[in-house]
């Protein structure tokens, strides 16, 4: 009992935000319900991103009805590589990556060769709502494959590392990188065993790394020193997160970004209810930074670039977070 009280006191001191606090004080206050479809439907996010000039993998075409599925064969055979994904999937479910093609055979990311009939079944499943929230019927998005920046290949096992930035009222307040592990089965999902790396908001350098909520220093599969991570194009990534706020109007927003070696940071998806694990990865709480941003005058109408410069100055290191 006493140790529990001590835990609560320390969590308070670090400004750790709990689920109830996130739901009541931030999500329900700053995220208007009617804006949710913009981020829950990846197709809407994508079209919006193209409208606002936020870079995102190029959309090839959309399949919305079952009878269109057969006619996609000709279109798919013109593409060398592509990604099939459900518009309303969550947590990376139902995403199929074809990285190459040989004649009528498609080669998946993992090297497995599949036929068009396999793709057709996958599309049928997506349309039926197998991967969508609540099982409602869905649409298939076909888009370009991201050419991953190779600077992180040593740090991620099987999967692709992505960067999650939380932007509050358009100010990027905290960021982390998620690295897939053998335990997480190639998925960048922290509670399945992926590694979370907290990133300094001013530089994109590693602050702290955790797996299963516990601090680690090396990648459990590749053995590389996680402290060496320093994400390139850092300012661009923060800019992208800040602009996603302008584009959606959501006050409390999680932005998932992937680095393309040619095109730079790409918006992968947005989340209107980003989780709390980012605090564990950073080893500090969100609340001091959120309250700081809440204290900024409402009348301030800064551009994304000004806001990014502000946070890079303000939230320099975890240790230097200004007290309330």
């Amino acid at each position: 009992m006493l140790s529990q009280l001590r835990t609560i006191r320390r969590m308070h001191a670090l400004g750790v935000m709990g689920m109830n606090c996130r739901n009541v004080d931030y999500i329900s206050r700053y995220n208007e319900r009617k804006l949710y479809p913009l981020v829950d439907d990846k197709l809407k996010t994508k079209l919006l991103a193209e409208e606002y000039g936020v870079s995102t993998p190029t959309l090839r075409f959309v399949v919305s009805e079952q009878h269109e599925v057969d006619s996609t064969q000709a279109k798919l055979e013109q593409l060398d590589n592509f990604v099939l994904k459900p518009a309303q999937g969550s947590g990376g479910k139902g995403i199929l990556v074809v990285s190459a093609r040989e004649g009528s055979e498609f080669i998946k990311n993992s090297g497995v060769r599949i036929e068009f009939s396999d793709l057709r079944r996958h599309m049928t499943n997506i349309l039926a709502g197998l991967y969508s929230l609540g099982g409602t019927s869905d649409r298939v998005i076909v888009e370009d494959v991201i050419a991953f920046d190779e600077s992180f290949t040593n740090f991620s096992f099987e999967g692709v590392p992505d960067i999650r930035v939380i932007a509050f009222r358009g100010y990027p307040v905290m960021a982390m990188m998620r690295l897939a592990t053998h335990a997480s089965d190639g998925k960048a999902n922290l509670h399945q065993g992926a590694v979370g790396v907290g990133l300094a908001i001013d530089s994109g350098a590693c602050l702290n790394a955790v797996q299963y909520n516990r601090p680690i220093t090396e990648h459990p599969d590749t053995g590389y020193n996680l402290k060496e991570i320093k994400v390139p194009n850092w300012r661009e990534i923060l800019m992208l997160a800040a602009r996603c706020h302008d584009m959606t109007g959501l006050g409390y927003l999680g932005t998932d970004v992937v680095l393309d070696k040619n095109a730079g940071p790409q918006l992968l998806e947005l989340n209107a209810r980003p989780g709390l694990a980012i605090q564990i990865a950073n080893g500090t709480g969100l609340l001091p930074r959120l309250r700081h941003v809440e204290g900024l005058p409402d009348s301030r109408r800064w551009s994304a670039s000004q806001r990014v410069d502000y946070v890079m100055r303000q939230f320099r290191q975890a240790e230097q977070v200004p007290a309330e």
């Binding site: 529990q4 835990t7 609560i8 320390r10 969590m11 670090l14 750790v16 709990g18 689920m19 109830n20 606090c21 009541v24 004080d25 955790v210 909520n213 516990r214 601090p215 709390l276 605090q279 564990i280 080893g283």
Partner: peptide, 20 residues
């Protein structure tokens, strides 16, 4: 419905973080 404090299970979740 208006409680914004920590949940009991969150104490466990964040325990290693605040003690580390």
């Amino acid at each position: 419905g208006n409680y914004t404090g920590y949940r009991l299970t969150e104490l466990r979740r964040f325990r290693d973080m605040v003690q580390g």
